[in-house]
């Protein structure tokens, strides 16, 4: 048996033939494919394909636009994308419009920190412009990062809470609440940040270890108060315990 004969037989076998690479090279090739999808308007085509199917609407909770995405963001958007793609493939009109949360203290604080002493000379409108630039930068970053995860959707039409349209919509919602009489003015103890001199939401509170005083204080009962069980006793005090002497 010669080598020649062996080779001949090999050629008579129907061995697998494909250019499909075992080396996926995903980091290099995925962005190219995604760009292709975008050029073809794939997300819109998927929705159009299912135009007559039942609607499945997932409304996107907007991530806060003040940093690069972390693994939690990735998890959230990937779960949404898996779900929406399944819904589309299984016969739903599943339009997905991502959003970004752009207003608020964290961004304003960051901007004020960056501006440093200059901030005090700026008007609210100028500070707002800085905040807008800052938020827009992170919106653009996060959008690209989410796309890089293969997340489909109407990215060109993503909603920004700071956009003119959406801000007006938010104010319109507020107007409706005022009209319904559910908005009231009131005094209230709130979580108060003495550094930033502002009320904080419950969601803006984090608990951390703090060393406080622990004091027991006498509140002497006013002379002449007649209390059953205390008749005839002098020097009666209620004793309170507190960790905050000042209040």
């Amino acid at each position: 048996m010669t080598q020649q004969e062996k080779t001949d037989y090999k050629e008579t076998l129907n061995l697998p033939r494909t250019e499909f690479p075992m080396q996926a090279r995903l980091p290099q090739r995925e962005p190219v494919r995604f760009a292709q999808w975008e050029a073809e308007g794939l997300s819109a085509r998927i929705v159009a394909q299912h135009a007559n199917d039942p609607v499945f609407c997932l409304h996107d909770g907007p991530p806060y636009a003040n940093g690069a995405i972390h693994i939690g963001h990735a998890l959230n958007k990937i779960l949404k994308d898996v779900l929406i793609r399944y819904k589309a493939m299984s016969g739903h009109k599943a339009y997905y419009r991502p959003g970004f949360d752009c207003h608020g203290l964290p961004i304003e604080q960051k901007v004020l920190q960056k501006l440093g002493g200059k901030a005090r000379k700026l008007s609210p409108v100028e500070i707002r412009a800085e905040c807008r630039r800052y938020a827009q930068k992170w919106v653009d970053t996060q959008r690209e990062e989410f796309k890089r995860l293969g997340v489909g959707g109407d990215w060109d039409n993503a909603y920004l809470t700071m956009s003119h349209e959406t801000s007006l919509g938010i104010l319109r919602a507020f107007r409706d609440l005022v009209a319904r009489g559910v908005v009231r003015r009131g005094m209230r103890p709130n979580y108060w940040d003495p550094v930033f001199r502002t009320v904080l939401a419950e969601a803006e509170i984090e608990y951390a270890t703090h060393v406080s005083d622990s004091i027991y204080v006498k509140f002497p009962l006013t002379e002449g108060e007649a209390v059953a069980g205390l008749a005839g006793l002098a020097n009666v005090s209620l004793v309170i315990w507190t960790t905050m002497a000042s209040t």
Binding site: E206, S212, T243
Partner: peptide, 8 residues
């Protein structure tokens, strides 16, 4: 003890 702090 655990005391509320500002998240920012």
């Amino acid at each position: 003890h655990q005391y509320p702090h500002s998240w920012r």
